[in-house]
Write a protein that binds this DNA or RNA. Structure first.
Lengths: 212, 212
DNA sequence: GGTTTTCCGTACAGTACTGTACGGAACATG
DNA sequence: CATGTTCCGTACAGTACTGTACGGAAAACC
């Protein structure tokens, strides 16, 4: 875990035996008893992330029967909870590293596959579902990228707050196919009174308080 | 430029006087005559990127009068041309670095501002336009992230190819507001026969050759 | 209670880098 | 031609890291 946090902050070079030992209050001599060398720590951390990244998806969202609602919950969940800030951008930055590449490939494949299944159930053709999944996953990755900027300039990509809430709705409405039923919040019920386009326009009309 | 390429490959630590001198066929002694120290090279490279990143946007797309077409061309342009592969993901990975943060903030601000202007002209409220701009820019960043994975597993995010062409169309149709006129290619003319939703369905119906 | 295993710390090469000092070549300029 | 400027190379500390050797404490085991 300490290695993953270091990775999120300073990239792969930040995973150093020296720094981790310092941070954990131990010495390098102790370190080299638990791990063969630095690469062993890196691969162990990556495997830990891979397990977490794939299990959390299927565990939390696999049960929801309605594909539209599942997709919505998935996006909300993925964008809202972000246990180690900046981890995914750091990983994609080292995508070509021999230790990172296979892990990142598998996780990406699994996630896009899950998304593709959702769009497929919503009526898209195989190729169309795949394309929408790629677009949706790209939006997710970029969302985390923007969050990694850290400043107060982009309140919409934060994990909480008024602007973040509205932006998350915008993201979901953009990524869900038009006409998909999607209640705004769990207890609010399903406002399937019109198409997604009508919903979109209604939203734009009632919102005049924004920045320039 | 060599520093930017090194940054794209191995992150900020890859910008080393030693490595750059080797690559350029010079020695470090020569290097330290041109630059005060390593930080000077980093900041110079970042400023070079900032100039390029902001100028290329306003120069190439600012002329187009139709906001919908301008937005479409912008997305196509931004996703298609990618002079230094992996640069943007590498930069966002070091978003908290004191030298990177201000540059990245300014570039992001400028780009999102440009996008906001496009959506504004298309009829969105200020807040709505801003939200859509954030979503669109996130999709762009994530697109580059996926491309950085590099493998053959994601042909849709490549700079060329059949799958890439179809995926790019999907991206544009997702990010453009429904009902926006958008010809597929420059000489093809404007097929404004129906709404964007109708276009979307027609596309899904005629495409049955994809993967599972 | 003695012995082995487990775990931690110090000490020592070895590597790769930064920054500076300095010497020298190529060239321009008076 | 003499001199100064520009530019490049080598040499030398100094730093931060990796990996290994080895010594020792603490606990487990018989």
């Amino acid at each position: 875990m300490a290695a993953l946090h270091a990775l999120a902050r300073g990239g792969l070079p930040a995973i150093s035996v020296e720094a981790l030992a310092r941070e954990l209050g131990a010495t390098r001599g102790s370190f080299y008893w638990h791990f063969a060398n630095r690469d062993a720590v890196v691969t162990a951390a990556l495997q830990l992330w891979q397990r977490e990244a794939t299990e959390s998806v299927i565990a939390g969202l696999g049960a929801e029967p309605d594909p539209g609602l599942r997709l919505r919950r998935l996006i909300e969940f993925a964008v809202t909870v972000d246990p180690i800030a900046g981890l995914e951008p750091a990983l994609t930055a080292h995508a070509r590293h021999p230790a990172v590449a296979p892990v990142l490939r598998d996780v990406t494949e699994a996630r896009i596959g899950f998304l593709t299944g959702c769009y497929r159930e919503l009526g898209s053709s195989p190729a169309e579902a795949r394309r929408r999944a790629v677009v949706a996953y790209a939006a997710y990755l970029g969302w985390l990228d923007l969050r990694a900027l850290g400043g107060d300039d982009l309140p919409e990509v934060a994990t909480q707050g008024q602007d973040a809430h509205a932006a998350l709705d915008e993201l979901v409405e953009t990524l869900l196919p038009p006409g998909t039923n999607h209640p705004t919040r769990p207890g609010e019920g399903d406002r399937s009174d019109g198409s997604g386009v009508a919903d979109r326009d209604r939203k734009a009309r009632t919102d005049r308080t924004g920045r320039s």
